[in-house]
Design a protein around this nucleic acid. Structure first.
Length: 474
RNA sequence: GCCCCGUUCGUCUAGCGGCCUAGGACGCCAGGUUCUCAUCCUGGUAACACGGGUUCAAAUCCCGUACGGGGUGCCA
């Protein structure tokens, strides 16, 4: 794509782990920037100094890097620009567009509660709106600390255009005066957000629908500061948990790390998240990152919220696993295998096992787990209890093992020639029913990697020891 | 309470006035292929929230209701 002047930012608050919904927001911003050849900026909105943590700032960057969502500028920390925001607030103050408020948080809350009880609309009641200099001095003498509130219009409507939702309008009377500088002297989100979007030349704001209402306030501040232009806004549909409501921990994994550790590929995660609220015109679903970039289009983002479906993500991950080259998949699985098998990991065996597992796994963890039997000695092989119970119920299991042992003892050592069905069918049994017996003896479970290949990977002697051990246990 | 946004199969969605007896995908169910499991193939299940308009014609436009979500913070 030709370079453009589009400038977008992902601006999370570093107050916890990166929610899957935030990742989708980051992704859309990144896709749009990459699609148009624009600039993608990482901005950390850490104006709430009490809740923001360095740990979270580090984690955000780590997660974005793992996902491959690289940024061109930043990270810019708002905590380093408080003087700029405060200066803007002073300007608004001197122009009468904002005012000093001496109400304490508790007082405001109490009056709000009272309003609610009496059926009145809550919101700041404007008590400090028109204080005289003398009144202000009296409050200061009393030892009260000021916050700064922005004066919102009392009448008229606030409207702005949203790419996804069209014109969004609300009566100003429903938006009370709001704090832009806390009594502890720190600026609030609305102010920092408005100032930075101007200073950084942000042209497109893609963010969650939960911020739709706040846009009126940010835009009003922006105008009050002398900027009548506005960036393109696109409020993305929210991602809901199963059964509706916010996607939360009770719905399962909601942080990127959890999916990474469970063996999900970044490409699969991005692909799935991209499809929550958007899709390419031709209806394809399994797309590489490059394809996502090529196809992404704001005009095709839909307005309605989507429910997060772990099942479809799982399918998507399997699809992406199957599309990897052997080398790519080996590299992806290796960390998981190392964590499990450490020094016992045999690389040639590992590489062959990865190829065998590629067609039958939905996660990298599953792939690593399926090859466990290759990295233990014959007498350490753990038999999964369920599988053992299953084959114990097969009456002819001893006969099956006897026949297979005899076969393996003398069969030609050639993967293409080996045929375990022959000795089983010679007993008058169906191979399909007998196979779990052999799988359990060799791999420790009734279902797993193809057993002919597995026997070859283990070698004749090792395979025979396992078969005989199972036979003896029966 | 008030304000804002939304509403097509269980889920993700196609659809932007006639091509819709509503298409695809995931899931689920059944059958087939296969050395287990899985993959793969075939088939099936299942939706335009409701009520009014507008129009020759509405899933598509308008209004209302219901429902869902968000906001209503000295969080973002």
């Amino acid at each position: 794509m030709a370079p453009s002047d589009a400038r977008l930012r992902f601006s999370p608050a570093p107050t916890g782990f990166l929610h899957i919904g935030s990742v989708r927001t980051a992704l859309y911003n990144w896709l749009y920037a990459r699609h148009t050849g624009g600039t993608f900026i990482l901005r950390i909105e850490d104006t709430d100094v009490v809740r923001s943590t360095q740990e979270s700032i580090d984690e955000i960057q780590q997660v974005l890097r793992w996902l491959g969502l690289d940024w061109d500028e930043g990270p810019l920390l708002q905590s380093g620009r408080f003087d700029v925001y405060l200066e803007a607030a002073e300007r608004l103050l001197s122009e009468g567009k904002a005012y000093e408020c001496f109400c304490t948080e508790a007082e405001v809350r109490a009056r709000n509660d009272e309003a609610m009880r009496e059926g009145r609309t809550p919101g700041y009641d404007g008590r400090c709106r028109n204080l005289s200099a003398a009144e202000r001095a009296a409050f200061v003498a009393e030892g009260r600390v000021r916050s700064i509130r922005f004066r919102t219009p009392d009448e008229g409507r606030s409207t702005f255009d949203d790419v996804i939702r069209g014109e969004v309008a609300v009566d100003w009377s429903t938006i009370p005066d709001f704090v832009i500088v806390r009594s502890n002297g720190t600026p609030v989100f609305f102010l920092a957000n408005a100032v930075d979007d101007v200073d950084m030349g942000i042209t497109h704001v893609l963010r969650g629908e939960d911020l739709l209402d706040s846009t009126h306030r940010v835009l009003a501040l922006r105008r009050a500061l002398g900027h009548d232009d506005q960036p393109v806004y696109a409020h993305l549909p929210l991602i809901l948990g199963q059964g509706g409501g916010k996607l939360s921990k009770r719905h399962g994994a909601i942080s990127v790390e959890e999916y990474r550790d469970a063996g999900y590929l970044p490409g699969a995660l991005l692909n799935y998240l991209a499809l929550l609220g958007w899709g390419p015109e031709d209806g394809r679903e399994v797309l590489s990152v490059d394809e996502l970039i090529a196809e992404f289009d704001l005009a095709r983002v839909i307005p309605s919220a989507a429910t997060f479906d772990p099942k479809k993500l799982e399918w998507m991950n399997a699809e992406h696993i199957r599309r990897l080259t052997h080398t790519e998949l080996e590299a992806a699985v290796l960390p998981f295998a190392r964590a499990r098998y450490g020094g016992r990991l045999d690389i040639p065996r590992f590489e062959k096992a990865v190829v065998l597992a590629q067609e039958r796994a939905t996660t990298l963890v599953q792939i690593a787990d399926q090859m466990a039997f290759l990295f233990v000695s014959d007498d350490e092989l753990e038999i999964e209890p369920g599988s053992w119970e299953k084959i114990r119920r097969i009456e002819q299991a001893p006969a099956i093992l006897d026949a297979v042992i005899a076969y393996v003892e003398t069969c030609p050592w050639d993967l293409d020639a080996i045929d375990l069905k022959a000795p089983i069918e010679a007993l008058g049994l169906k191979a399909g029913k007998a196979m779990p017996v052999i799988y359990t003896a060799i791999e420790g479970r009734a279902a797993g990697l193809p057993v002919y290949d597995s026997i070859f990977l283990l070698g004749r002697e090792s395979a025979l020891r396992r078969l005989r051990a199972a036979r003896a246990k029966l």
